[in-house]
Design a protein around this nucleic acid. Sequence first.
DNA 1: CGGTTTGCAATGCGACCGCATGGCAAAAGG
DNA 2: CCTTTTGCCATGCGGTCGCATTGCAAACCG
Lengths: 208, 208
Amino acid sequence: MPKIVDHEERRRRLVDAVWALTVRGGIEQVTLRKVAEQAGVSMGQVQHYYSSMQALVRDALDRAVRAVNANIEKAVEAAGATTPEAVLRACLHALISPDQESMRLMRFSLAAAGRAVSDPTMARVLAPGDDELLSFTAGLITAARQERGVELREDARMDADISWALATSLGVDVALGYRSPEAAARVLSHHIDQVLGVLGSGGREATA
Amino acid sequence: MPKIVDHEERRRRLVDAVWALTVRGGIEQVTLRKVAEQAGVSMGQVQHYYSSMQALVRDALDRAVRAVNANIEKAVEAAGATTPEAVLRACLHALISPDQESMRLMRFSLAAAGRAVSDPTMARVLAPGDDELLSFTAGLITAARQERGVELREDARMDADISWALATSLGVDVALGYRSPEAAARVLSHHIDQVLGVLGSGGREATA
DNA sequence: CGGTTTGCAATGCGACCGCATGGCAAAAGG
DNA sequence: CCTTTTGCCATGCGGTCGCATTGCAAACCG
């Protein structure tokens, strides 16, 4: 077995080139030649690692999904969140992080979602969360309500659904510059407050 | 002035072809030749009415925005909404209408939004609402709260913002088949109930 | 009737696309 | 040494793209 290279590293380079090209000029700029140039390799190498353009874009999307999830987990850890409410807030706020890397991922995800119109496998990031995620989040909401002493309701799952949809939407807006990170954070916090029953009567303090 | 034709009708035909092509195969299928074929005219005619491909897609987006707004107004009228709450619900629910025409527009809008990554003029429909819309909606929310006898808060504008973001997101999901119209309607109604303070303690009836 | 203006249709051009193919350099085994 | 396997580069092909150009028929004015 001669000439052993790190395949994973090669693919990461190529996918990163796809992200960069998409963010800079839209997904229609992602061509074999441009990807090769951006990654500083030859067209041949791109073809060597991906059997087709579609396969490359698909892998780029796969990795984007995993990267977003990793960012969320990282954000939860970084926040040192111990209470369910803190975990909930950290998870949702991770989607609107003004961090360059996060914004890159959101922008690429939006471009990919545009393709979902014709290719159902292309939504993933911006589509509704799956059962597992919603159940987990609903659990957080219920636990947070309990801790706050708020009367419980059976609609936690729906609130989880709404919360992810809103956070995703805000994340796209931030990544495209339609909202400032601060404004998006205020909106998201306001919604979480409402979900957790924090908003009683004109109270302003709520949470940081 | 010889050979007078209806320019507006021509453009409508062409834009409709753009919508159809985008919905069927993604915005990357929108080419001069395909648009001409879809509209049943020659490439020359397309070029006669639009100086470039970009101009055509831009007009298609313009008209989509106007069509969505028209659909909303139509929905309000059709519902015979008289109270602020009924108007509010009609407006928001118009975005998740499972009507073929509405879903076409949402799908095209999503494809266009995918281009917003590289072309800022391409968001429009799926971007946050403008000041005027938010103020109007906030007014509806406040009035609806008053009618319900709910204690007033000063956050109506933010709730309006969130409501539009959620309705838009749900509308995309419905148009792409990620949610059934009924499921989306339940989610949206639940959110509006929450905004209007309908959800007190485990109550189930709320609204239809 | 001829002239002018409008509304297109047809065709051609250069650029770029994804992908297939063929070959060659480097590393390891014999 | 030679062979084999791996990783990759270079090039060529058929197709499609947006757009410019050219020409001409229909409709109105005089």
